[in-house]
């Protein structure tokens, strides 16, 4: 343990040090009692599965209804900004982070002896199941997690379009960003009965698709995201007259909402919304 860590412990007082030590020992055997989550997506998995009082804090992003599917629930928790100092002072016995979240804070917390578990971004429905079960194990909520996975699978089977034509759809975000195979969005579109145009455009994973090429690919539907306040050139692209003209001949499409952002059972709301759009499209033909 570094000098800094020892000094911090002394400053935090013997009580905190004891608590930390106890936490470290107990976490191996019993469920953690003070869980802090630093990442928008681990926030939601934890809120879904944690026992009352078990989850101490979620990231401030989770209160933003633009990106968080559980912004209402998040109002009931203390928020953190992913900074090592504020998180350490919450005396967590388990910290949840995304594998790209707050790297300096994660390193610092580990040096201070806090247990940090990282979740990579979910790239498929399979990842959602795996992460639900993993979060259930970590929080000591195995049965609840297994139940949630079963419910997820049942509702997905109910929603999934398995036959009939598959109209093409383009996800087109700020800066012309689109997502292709191997992403959660692609799984959502596939389940809703769409063929993602990114595959035809040769965009693997995520990448920008020039507006010219989007126009030439002539998708049956163009889905964009909700707009942030303030102005940006990146979003101004979505008002380009060529895109407006392209969309004028296509049916109205839902926006990609916060349900698309994280791999939680909330993605099924996105599947349902997209499936309704697909059914309307087919009925109109």
């Amino acid at each position: 343990m570094s000098v800094f860590a020892r000094a911090s412990r002394r400053l935090a007082g013997p009580g905190a040090a004891l608590g930390l030590w106890l936490g470290a020992v107990l976490s191996a055997t019993a469920a953690p009692e003070r869980v802090v989550s630093l990442n928008l997506c681990t926030d939601q998995l934890a809120m879904l599965l944690a026992a009352p009082g078990q989850l101490v804090s979620v990231s401030f992003l989770s209160r933003n209804p633009m990106i968080s599917a559980m912004s209402d629930r998040a109002q009931g928790y203390r928020v953190n900004h992913g900074r090592a100092e504020e998180v350490f002072l919450m005396r967590p016995d388990l910290v949840l982070a995304g594998s790209y979240t707050a790297r300096p804070a994660v390193r610092m917390l580990r040096r201070l002896g806090v247990k940090v578990v990282e979740f990579p971004p979910e790239r498929s429905f399979t990842d959602i199941r795996a992460h639900l079960l993993r979060m259930g194990r970590l929080l000591g909520q195995r049965e609840k997690a297994a139940r949630m996975v079963a419910e997820f699978d049942a509702r997905l089977a109910d929603l999934r379009v398995t036959r009939g034509p598959r109209p093409s759809v383009a996800l087109y975000g700020p800066n012309g960003y689109t997502t292709g195979a191997g992403t959660l969005a692609d799984d959502i579109l596939d389940a809703a009965g769409f063929a993602n145009i990114a595959a035809r455009a040769g965009v693997p994973g995520g990448g920008t698709l020039p507006l010219e090429r989007l126009v030439m690919l002539r998708p049956d539907l163009v889905v964009t995201g909700a707009r942030y306040p303030g102005a940006s050139q990146a979003e101004a692209l979505l008002d380009h007259p060529a895109l407006t003209a392209l969309r004028a001949n296509l049916p109205a499409a839902p926006d990609t909402g916060p349900e698309w952002a994280c791999g939680t059972p909330h993605v099924l709301d996105a599947v349902a919304e997209m499936r309704a759009a697909r059914d309307a499209l087919e009925a109109g033909k």
């Binding site: 700020p174 303030g230 102005a231 940006s232 050139q233 990146a234 979003e235």
Partner: peptide
Amino acid sequence: SPNPYAAAE
């Protein structure tokens, strides 16, 4: 700016 894309501009 409240817009997350603005700073990149």
